[in-house]
């Protein structure tokens, strides 16, 4: 399964038309229309009513669309959201396999009723008669924002084949993960590495960034966001959530290989190819040993850069109604 480039996941309250409209212009890889935390209980009905229109607006702008459901109102939230253009559902506060399976069944019900398929990558066309497969079914993203959810991450992820990505969600707020004297958030290095490890072992994308500031990551400054993203990419994250439009560019940049990264990767591949042409199994370039593994990593980095560029290009010319 080819991984989609999802560097920035911008969460916006679904009932705030101005913020949704602003999100459509950010070039976020993913916009998450929120029905949970950022929507007061008294506004949830209004937010659900606006969902279908918001999905189209965001999708037409070239971003993928997810909806963050409130687990307390899962059915109503999915009923208002499972329409053409939606790519997936972000589930917060997940602590049990039953919650994941409940979401899967409800999602499947609405998909079947409404003939909804997951849209193809931005810029590609959805074949109308395409048979339903797991590839074109709506996705689930698990937001593991509690101790129990994080501890049970492997079995929660494996509870449904729709689960394609996972994040620590609001763990920084519900688990006393507060700043330590040296800048790290308490427990965060352990939790982030554990999430990356579990995600790789189960074949889903780890989403997150190496937040360090005393400020909460999801509303951090663009500069801090960039550093968190760049460090997060090197630690194994594929993209990160944010809640401010001005963080999107920083996330996209931080999760895209830099020009220095690309120059180095090209030099590595050149040195390795030259060594191979001489019948050697490895090269030495600037005192670095370059073997098959190092060359493979450089090659993957170039592939990622190409994919990022293709995603950015496609967003410039999204296909209307795709």
């Amino acid at each position: 399964m080819k991984e989609r480039v999802r560097r920035s996941w911008l969460i916006v309250p679904a009932h705030k038309t101005d913020l949704v409209s602003q999100a459509s212009a950010t070039k976020a890889d993913v916009v998450v229309l929120d029905l949970e935390d950022t929507v007061h209980d008294t506004r949830k009905a209004e937010a659900r009513q606006k969902m279908r229109e918001a999905i189209q607006l965001i999708r037409n702008s070239g971003s993928e669309v997810f909806v963050r459901c409130d687990p307390d109102f899962l059915y109503a939230d999915l009923e208002s959201s499972v329409y053409r253009g939606l790519t997936g559902v972000l589930l917060p506060r997940i602590t049990s396999v039953e919650q994941v399976q409940d979401a899967e069944h409800t999602l499947a019900e609405f998909e079947a009723q409404r003939g909804v398929r997951k849209p193809p990558p931005v810029g590609e066309i959805l074949e109308v008669d395409e048979a339903r497969t797991i590839e074109n079914s709506l996705e689930l993203h698990l937001s593991l924002d509690t101790g129990r959810g994080n501890w049970d991450a492997p079995k929660l992820i494996q509870a449904s084949p729709r689960v394609r990505s996972v994040s620590l969600g609001r763990a920084d707020l519900t688990m006393d993960l507060r700043p330590e004297p040296e800048g790290d958030l308490h427990l965060m290095p352990y939790l982030m590495q554990r999430l990356i490890l579990v995600a790789n072992a189960t074949g889903v994308q780890p989403i997150g960034a190496w937040w360090q500031s005393a400020s909460r990551g999801l509303v951090d400054t663009p500069q801090n966001t960039y550093h968190a993203a760049a460090t997060g990419r090197k630690a194994g994250f594929k993209g990160a959530l944010c809640m401010r439009a001005n963080q999107v560019e920083a996330l996209n940049r931080g999760f895209t290989p830099s020009s220095e990264d690309l120059s180095q990767a090209q030099a590595i591949l050149h040195a390795f190819a030259t060594a191979q042409a001489r019948g050697l199994s490895r090269a030495v370039d600037h005192r670095q040993f370059i073997d098959q593994g190092i060359a493979g990593a450089a090659s993957r980095l170039l592939d990622l850069a190409v994919a990022c560029q293709a995603t950015d290009q496609a967003k410039l010319h999204p296909i209307e109604g795709a």
Binding site: N150, P181, R194
Partner: peptide
Amino acid sequence: VYPRGEGALIARAFGKSFGISVH
């Protein structure tokens, strides 16, 4: 980092208190 993190996570997962000691 690892054993402290694991202990703290397990404690939280099962509703126990854990003695936090930042480095």
